[in-house]
């Protein structure tokens, strides 16, 4: 087993642990903090089911962003849908046999990386061209975009230019999953791609990438508009009431 294989494998295990614990910690934290008041942004659904639909539109169609800014919506959609397809295509490295849908998505998945990169470059350009967006941009915003663009580019290059030994790669990824290490093809582009992805996984829980978790917990979006019908009291607020009754 080459040193490279061991390093990359170790890094991936480390990244996976950080990613999972980090995200789970955030989920736990958000779930634990009470929302003491009903603050849905109205008009809001009056039933739980309506809220599920609202959230669905928000997560899959970026409804609010669409209302806000069409160009930004297009760029965000290019990037996120592109990324989703690319990730879906990557399932073929982790499933054996490869399910039919993943096989069918293969040709789209390949080109989705272009959509993803174009979207990212567009988002990046806004950070230079629009004075308001330039004003709110921190160095980390540029770094995050750079990281994502590089991941996209290195991935696309291994697919379209410097082909990787897919069979060996799959043996490696399956080996990671089954804790039975197999050698990683020592292809520089591939190694770069993997290192960048591991970096992304590590920074994810500590950065704004957390928005992917936050959106589900956003009280203005996930609360049912029924304050008159159902009394809503947080645990710490209940204590205020009890203290009074006892005093």
């Amino acid at each position: 087993m080459s040193l490279l294989t061991i390093i990359v494998a170790a890094l991936f295990y480390f990244a996976a642990v950080i990613f999972l614990t980090g995200v789970l910690y955030r989920v736990w934290l958000y779930a634990k903090v009470p929302a003491p008041l009903k603050i849905a942004t109205t008009p809001a659904p009056v039933t739980r089911w309506g809220v599920v639909l609202r959230m669905f539109r928000e997560v899959f169609f970026f409804e609010s962003l669409f209302k806000s800014n069409k160009l930004l919506w297009i760029l965000a959609a290019l990037f996120h849908y592109g990324l989703a397809l690319v990730l879906f295509r990557h399932l073929r490295y982790f499933l054996d046999p490869v399910p039919l849908v993943v096989q069918l998505a293969q040709p789209f998945g390949k080109y989705a990386s272009f959509a993803m990169i174009i979207g990212l470059l567009g988002l990046w350009a806004r950070r230079f061209l629009i004075d308001r967006v330039r004003y709110i941009t921190a160095p980390s915003d540029h770094l995050m975009l750079a990281l994502l663009v590089l991941i996209g580019l290195s991935g696309a290059l291994t697919t379209f230019v410097a082909h990787t030994d897919i069979v060996a790669l799959k043996q490696f990824t399956m080996g990671l999953l089954t804790f039975d290490l197999k050698p990683l093809p020592g292809d520089p582009l591939l190694v770069i791609h993997l290192l960048l992805v591991a970096t992304l996984m590590i920074v994810f829980p500590y950065s704004k990438l957390l928005h992917g978790v936050g959106v589900f917990f956003s009280p203005t979006r996930n609360m049912v508009d029924n304050p008159r019908e159902q009394r809503h009291v947080a645990s710490w607020a209940r204590k205020l009431e009890l203290e009074e009754e006892n005093s």
């Binding site: 903090v33 930004l72 009280p219 203005t220 710490w236």
Partner: peptide
């Protein structure tokens, strides 16, 4: 406040600086 208000915690973490709100 971070312990008492989910909105506060989630909102402070989640902004991606997309700028959609900048002209609103």
């Amino acid at each position: 406040m971070l312990k008492k208000y989910r909105s506060f915690q989630v909102f402070l973490d989640s902004c991606v600086k997309c700028g959609a709100c900048t002209d609103k």
